[in-house]
Amino acid sequence: MPGWSEHVGTAVALPRDNIDTDQLIPARFMSTPRAQGYGNFLLHDLRRDAHDALDETFPLNTCPDASILVAGRNFGSGSSREAAVYALLDAGFRVVIAPSFGDIFAANAVNNGLLPAQVTPEVAADLAELLASGPREMTVTLESREILCGATRVSFDVKDGWRTKLINGWDDIDLTLDHAARIAAFRDDRRSAAPWAWPRRPGAQYAR
């Protein structure tokens, strides 16, 4: 997956708490092949009325090109379905800003290049207020952990390891390989300090 250090895009606000993974993509769509795209399933039941027509007043429907979502607390809670992240990505989103996230959702997001940017409830409310009148351009910078919207500049939190993965486009294996030299040094030191702990090869007194 390609890495990135700064994203400039259109932001929309959905200031609701507890948007869980079943809301992000209802279970009845889970059998659809990913190759067909999950974007149309994102928040399907919230975005449509009783007749399955798009609700023109729903924030995501007013700006189909949005790539940054400002949401409420506990975003992505619920089941561990990775398809919730796929739905956001396939709909064009690259950043979700919220006061808190479901743990598994946040990890799945990072592994797919989607940033879960954690802010304080006050910052989330301020950003949502800025977007209350409509979508606006926003810049999210991973290096400085900053969000810029007009004259408003605020900070967000993201784990160091997650930030490294997003910037470099790494998965968990890549992140481990970045420590290959230290792992090899530990192995060699351990082999010297406790040779008895290593499997013995035929004909050798100790493992080599």
Rank of each mutant, 00 (worst) to 15 (best):
D174Y: 10
V70H: 00
D157P: 03
G113D: 08
G39F: 03
R48E: 02
D22S: 06
L115T: 10
A27I: 08
G92E: 07
I19H: 05
L130D: 08
R208W: 13
P199S: 11
A128G: 14
S155T: 07
Q23N: 11
P2S: 13
R136Y: 04
S100A: 09
F41A: 09
G3L: 03
D49T: 03
I104D: 05
A106W: 01
F186R: 15
K159R: 14
D126S: 13
Q36F: 12
A151C: 09
G161N: 11
D126T: 08
L166T: 00
D90M: 04
D172R: 08
V96E: 02
A180E: 09
Y206E: 11
S133C: 09
F156D: 03
V158E: 07
V123S: 10
A50H: 06
S133R: 14
T176P: 05
E122M: 07
V8L: 14
A84M: 08
R136A: 06
R182F: 11
R34Y: 07
L43A: 04
F186A: 14
S79N: 05
N61M: 01
T152A: 12
L43G: 04
R191Y: 12
D189M: 13
G92F: 10
I147T: 00
V123I: 15
T57A: 12
V154N: 04
H51E: 15
V158K: 00
V158D: 04
L148W: 13
A50N: 05
P135T: 09
R182G: 13
V123E: 11
L130M: 12
C63H: 12
L115P: 06
L130Y: 08
F105S: 02
D55H: 04
T10E: 14
Q118V: 06
W198Y: 15
F105M: 01
H44W: 13
T176V: 08
Y86G: 07
D157M: 05
V95C: 05
A71H: 03
D65V: 01
G9Q: 02
A180R: 11
I19E: 03
V70N: 01
V85A: 07
L130S: 10
W196V: 10
E146H: 12
I19V: 13
A125C: 05
I97G: 02
Q36P: 04
G134W: 11
E137M: 10
T10V: 13
A109R: 06
L127R: 04
I104K: 06
A207G: 14
T139P: 03
A66V: 00
P99F: 06
S5D: 14
P195A: 06
G102T: 02
V119N: 05
A83M: 12
A181L: 12
A107L: 12
H7R: 05
A50C: 01
P199T: 11
S77H: 14
V12D: 04
L54H: 02
F41M: 10
A132N: 09
S5P: 03
N111A: 09
N18L: 09
I147D: 03
S80R: 08
Y206K: 11
N18I: 00
A84L: 07
A180K: 11
S100G: 09
Q205V: 15
G113C: 06
E6Q: 15
R48M: 00
A207L: 02
P15E: 00
T164N: 07
Y38D: 09
A151H: 14
T10I: 12
R182D: 15
R16I: 12
L89Q: 08
D189Q: 13
T120D: 01
V70R: 00
P26M: 05
D126G: 09
L60N: 00
P33A: 09
A124H: 06
L142D: 10
V110S: 06
L46K: 02
